[in-house]
Structures are given as C-alpha cells and as structure tokens.
Simulated assay, not measured.
Amino acid sequence: MADTRTITVEINTKEIIKPSSPTPPHLRVLTLSYFDQFAPDLYLSLVLFYTKIRDTRETSQRLKSSLSQVLTDFYPFSGGKQREHLC
C-alpha cells in the first residue's frame, strides 16, 4: 500500500548567509581522503523543522548569526573554493 501523506512547505524568504569573518590561515587547506577525492559530487536539499515559536524574527536572526559564525571554520560548506591535497 502506497503512503499518501504529504507535507506542504511554504518558503517565506531565501537568503545567502556569508561567513562572519575570513577563514583563518591554518584552516584554508582542506585535506581530502582518497575516498573524498573520487566520490561523486552529491547535492542535497535540506529542510529544517522547528517547533512553533512566538518571536520568529529574533529566532531567525539568531540562526543566521550562528550559521555565519560556523561557516568561518567550515568554509567548504560556504561555497568557497577549496584546494585538494592527497593524504
């Protein structure tokens, strides 16, 4: 029997979140394993679900700020160019 449940998603806004500061020099070289170098590119859509909150504007701003700070250390996820090195 097929599952007929559906979820309706409403997109309110789309934004590009940039890193809060430049990536430190010691994190600029990304060392990839052999597996990572030869694995096919994989792109995933991501949908996050949160419980209903009263102050959506403040919560949204906090999420954007925290993501911006994290992208400084994990620059490949921010869409930055990466240099590949063999392990």
Results as ranks from 00 to 15, higher is better:
residue 22 P to H: 04
residue 44 L to P: 00
residue 9 V to L: 14
residue 80 G to R: 10
residue 85 H to T: 15
residue 10 E to T: 15
residue 73 D to E: 00
residue 24 P to G: 06
residue 37 Q to R: 13
residue 33 S to E: 05
residue 6 T to L: 03
residue 14 K to N: 08
residue 6 T to I: 01
residue 75 Y to V: 00
residue 28 R to I: 00
residue 66 S to Q: 14
residue 10 E to S: 11
residue 7 I to S: 03
residue 67 L to M: 15
residue 86 L to Y: 12
residue 58 E to A: 11
residue 37 Q to F: 03
residue 29 V to Y: 08
residue 49 F to M: 09
residue 17 I to D: 00
residue 79 G to C: 06
residue 45 S to R: 10
residue 60 S to E: 14
residue 62 R to W: 01
residue 2 A to I: 10
residue 8 T to A: 07
residue 64 K to W: 06
residue 84 E to L: 14
residue 52 K to Y: 06
residue 3 D to H: 07
residue 78 S to W: 00
residue 31 T to A: 07
residue 54 R to T: 13
residue 1 M to H: 11
residue 12 N to E: 13
residue 74 F to E: 04
residue 2 A to Y: 06
residue 31 T to R: 15
residue 83 R to Y: 06
residue 34 Y to W: 07
residue 25 P to R: 01
residue 26 H to A: 10
residue 45 S to V: 04
residue 56 T to M: 04
residue 39 A to V: 05
residue 65 S to R: 09
residue 19 P to A: 05
residue 53 I to E: 15
residue 26 H to G: 01
residue 50 Y to D: 12
residue 1 M to S: 13
residue 37 Q to N: 08
residue 30 L to C: 09
residue 61 Q to R: 15
residue 26 H to D: 13
residue 64 K to A: 13
residue 86 L to R: 15
residue 28 R to K: 14
residue 40 P to V: 03
residue 66 S to L: 12
residue 12 N to F: 07
residue 53 I to Q: 14
residue 86 L to I: 10
residue 50 Y to Q: 11
residue 76 P to Q: 01
residue 8 T to Q: 11
residue 10 E to Y: 06
residue 24 P to L: 09
residue 69 Q to R: 15
residue 50 Y to I: 01
residue 29 V to H: 12
residue 43 Y to C: 10
residue 28 R to N: 06
residue 4 T to Q: 10
residue 57 R to M: 04
residue 35 F to G: 07
residue 45 S to M: 05
residue 35 F to N: 04
residue 12 N to P: 01
residue 68 S to V: 03
residue 62 R to K: 15
residue 10 E to Q: 11
residue 84 E to C: 07
residue 44 L to R: 07
residue 72 T to H: 01
residue 10 E to M: 08
residue 32 L to V: 05
residue 37 Q to E: 10
residue 70 V to K: 09
